[in-house]
Write a protein that binds this DNA or RNA. Structure first.
Lengths: 250, 250
DNA sequence: CTCCGAGTGCTTGTATACAATAACTGTCTA
DNA sequence: TAGACAGTTATTGTATACAAGCACTCGGAG
């Protein structure tokens, strides 16, 4: 085996307490593209040209390219070398796996929520639910509040670090949901959220777990129903890509 | 709300069945750097210079830089704009979260393993365990086999898609383990692996779950014991970085 | 009509030049 | 001595030029 030397480096992190949340163009482009992919502004399978995006966003290829690499790691974009980049298909297996991971993590986290949860976070969750009622017609805003709600539950369990994985999985679920959620009422989901929180605060994890499971399953069932109705939206992402047609108009 | 148009793109993916697993320099550099970070060739907090790495690996800054961006998304590297890139600290909270996610996913997956599991995968798992016995002294090889083993269990549950998240979490756990595993015997872990598989095949998920939980907890306990003994290795990654010293010799 | 092959224009991959900035070093000033 | 301040240098961020490769187009051979 390699010696695996235990190196020690003096002080890579230390003084200068000021937080500097520098916003690079790469980050801005990443956030924007991610929003468009999840919001279906860029549909599954849509071709993404680094040059076009760079021109549209007013930057060079470099930050666009780097943002695409990050999105590819999220599984939201597929890059085919020397061929092209495409928005990932909504793959049924991937959606199923995302659901599985989310369910496993969120249900397990309920067990780690202390009996005396952080009142500050609880207050935020209550306010969040109130806002959900007000935003029951706005799909975009609902998804924002939905993320904050589930994120808050993980914070209660002191497992905020897993949120990154959960939100990555949730991205695939949300994209699938949007494919068929145009006219559906969000009221049921909001009621489920309220039930979960109430059960958690009064009866603890034991009471909340079945309700949370039912809620997550309801989301998944929605997707499964859509898949049964419109299977073409869930085309498997097996095949190889082809370049987009070169032919121009004139 | 935005119209959220459901765009349809003709055929971004279709013909040409030949699989082309093109290996780019970016991918090669990513794999190599990831190996070095997890293998502690690059210790926690070590500075990573894009120029130095490019020179050493014989490529330009571009693939190195893109590989660092990918590693940053994995949480193994932290990039401070205009300051420098550093190997992430082994943060106790992050290790704990990784353990939590891994445990939640792997335990939940046991429930989804069919009573009649894929004999091909089972055969691979058996052979894997035999190899583990032979490699009980080679830490590097053990980690490879360990990954294959846990990956195989997820494949049995038909949740291979979650492996990416699990292996990302496992990376942080393994890095912490290596900090204090130099002389420890791996035999216990191999025995636990065998017990889990045997229990799964004879008694199903019910029998396997407590053994799997005990195994994962044993890994985590190892890390916690190390943290109690050498807390300086787990310095929190709060603070800001400083540039590495410019001073040259002459 | 069919097939084949060169040409062409797009794509991403890589290399490189330059810009912006952070932090250290030394000097100057009080 | 202490502190301010400008200079220096290394760092990453960004832009751009070029390389490599794929897929379509189109013309010609049979």
């Amino acid at each position: 085996m390699t010696a695996a030397p235990p190196p020690r480096h003096p002080h890579p992190y230390n003084r200068s307490m000021s937080t500097r949340p520098i916003r690079t163009n790469r980050r801005t482009v990443y956030d924007e593209l991610r929003r468009r992919v999840i919001g279906l502004d860029f549909g599954p399978g849509a071709p993404l040209s680094e040059n076009e995006l760079a021109a549209e966003l007013g930057v060079s290829r470099t930050p666009v390219r780097e943002a695409l690499i990050m999105l590819a790691q999220d599984g939201l974009v597929q890059v085919f070398p020397k061929v092209g980049s495409f928005v990932s298909r909504v793959d049924a297996q991937r959606v199923s796996d995302a659901q599985f991971l989310r369910e496993a993590v969120e249900l397990a986290s309920l067990d780690d929520i202390p009996a005396d949860p952080d009142p500050e976070v609880v207050k935020e969750l209550r306010e969040n639910l109130a806002q959900q009622e007000l935003a029951a017609d706005d799909l975009d805003q609902f998804f924002v509040l939905d993320e904050q709600f589930h994120h808050g539950l993980l914070r209660l369990a002191h497992h905020e670090g897993t949120w990154q994985s959960v939100v990555a999985a949730k991205a695939h679920l949300d994209r699938a949901r949007r494919l068929g959620l145009h006219d559906r009422s969000l009221h049921d989901f909001i009621v489920q959220h309220t039930q979960v929180l109430d059960a958690l605060l009064t009866g603890g994890a034991e009471e909340a777990r079945p309700l949370m499971r039912a809620h997550l399953r309801a989301v998944f069932d929605d997707i499964e129903r859509l898949r049964a109705r419109s299977p073409e939206l869930f085309a498997p992402s097996v095949g190889q890509p082809t370049r987009r047609n070169i032919a121009v108009w004139e």
